[in-house]
């Protein structure tokens, strides 16, 4: 691809998608499938409505807390598992058990225990983010070169210092790959948790609109959530690249959100 086309490619892809949507919608003439233009027109009213903004910000706040707590818990656990066989032997079966369960499926039980408020939703986000982050931290810590740790030991670093000052930075590129997957999962679990426990949030707006047959608002919310995903991912990617600017170049995913 030549130099001019490359940065424009994502924009062109979006325009193409919108055009296909517009044509399909015009062709199908279905009430529950508004055209792209109608949906786009429904975005400004949502973003200027105070109530909606409070909802969206509440979602983002829960997502940030869930994501942050998940990182604080999962990175140390993953690193320990990667460096200690006993820790890995203990936690691996538990994680394998939890892994295939859709985290949103736990929502009704969690709601039963903890209510429909922020705690339940944040917990679901926490669960959704934790697993990929644990897994990638584990893999990253496992792959740390033994000789690097030996070099640190010869300089007088204690086992704890080696975990913090050698394993953590050496595994950072892999950890951040997990965090990136975790960020997208945080967004997904955020919306699904609000679908099940309607009370506030972006998901609440979306599903209320669906109940009331306001399909342009439904699609507008889908676009807003999608745009939030792209922006968060792009911002995270900038941070990630800066943090691992020292690492050997790995293959870049053509799409930043995966």
């Amino acid at each position: 691809m030549n130099g001019l086309l490359k940065p424009l490619a994502p924009v062109l892809a979006c325009c193409g998608l919108l055009l296909a949507w517009q044509l399909a919608s015009l062709g199908l003439k279905n009430d529950s499938f508004p055209t792209a233009l109608e949906s786009l027109r429904a975005i400004p009213p949502i973003l200027t409505d105070k109530e909606s903004l409070i909802n969206i910000l509440a979602s983002l706040r829960r997502m940030a807390i869930g994501f942050g707590l998940a990182l604080a818990f999962s990175i140390p656990l993953g690193l320990l598992m990667g460096r200690s066989r006993a820790t890995a032997a203990f936690f691996n079966p538990l994680l394998m058990l939890i892994y295939p369960v859709p985290k949103a499926a736990l929502m009704p039980i969690i709601m039963l225990w903890l209510g429909v408020g922020d705690i339940s939703k944040t917990l679901v986000i926490f669960l959704g983010v934790s697993l990929p982050v644990i897994y990638h931290s584990f893999e990253g810590a496992k792959a740390v070169e033994e000789k690097m740790l030996w070099s640190g030991a010869a300089m007088g670093l204690s086992p704890g210092e080696r975990l913090l000052r050698i394993v953590l930075p050496a595994a950072l590129p892999e950890i951040l790959t997990g965090c990136r997957t975790g960020l997208v999962l945080a967004l997904i679990t955020m919306v699904t948790s609000e679908m099940i426990a309607r009370q506030s949030g972006a998901g609440n707006i979306l599903f209320n609109a669906l109940d009331m047959g306001q399909y342009d608002t439904v699609f507008a919310m889908i676009i807003i959530v999608g745009a939030m995903g792209i922006c968060l991912d792009a911002a995270f990617e900038i941070v990630r690249r800066w943090l691992v600017r020292w690492s050997e170049p790995q293959f870049d995913m053509p799409l930043s959100f995966s």
């Binding site: 070169e145 000789k147 690097m148 030996w150 070099s151 030991a153 010869a154 300089m155 007088g156 670093l157 050698i166 930075p169 050496a170 950072l172 020292w246 690492s247 050997e248």
Partner: peptide, 30 residues
């Protein structure tokens, strides 16, 4: 292991997140 015996490995085992200067300063700072 101890700082009285300093290893040099075939695999170099440098700390990739540290600059050249940071790598050499690591032991003395420790």
């Amino acid at each position: 292991p101890g700082p009285d015996r300093g290893p040099v490995f075939q695999e170099f085992a440098l700390f990739p997140w540290k600059s050249v200067l940071g790598n050499v300063m690591y032991g003395p700072l420790q």
